[in-house]
Amino acid sequence: MHIMMNAAVSGTKLPFGDNVLTAVLGYAVVFVGLMMLMTLVYIMGAIFKKLAAREKPISAAPIPKTGKPGGDAPKPEPEGEPARGTAGEIKLYNVSDKEAAMIMAIVASRMGKPLNELRFKSIKEVTDK
């Protein structure tokens, strides 16, 4: 290949055509390489999703309700406010954003895990009645 031949002459100036070709080819190699890697990671993800889906039915067995006989069924929880900045993933019940952030940081610290590896679904203030 012409470019490779030029490379053999270490320390020489590239002709204009080779300059353009090397730049375009280099960018293309990075793009194609990373796109192929992306495909591999997508395949890997799909395999793991399938595996997780197979395991789900076992873990998602219905939990029997433990309401008092003859008593009222437990009331569904009122919908919490989505926490700001979490794309609506974490529901907050009577907890301010600041307190929620503090709680998440404490939990991460106690568990010795980075915060981004933990997934919080909701934070609820429990009060004594």
């Binding site: 280099g26 960018y27 990075v30 990373l34």
Partner: peptide, 19 residues
């Protein structure tokens, strides 16, 4: 994984400055 496309795109400056 589509983040990898952005990682590739951002190498544009490498080849632009090379040129």
């Amino acid at each position: 994984p589509s983040s990898l496309i952005l990682g590739a795109a951002a190498q544009f400056g490498v080849f632009f400055a090379f040129f």
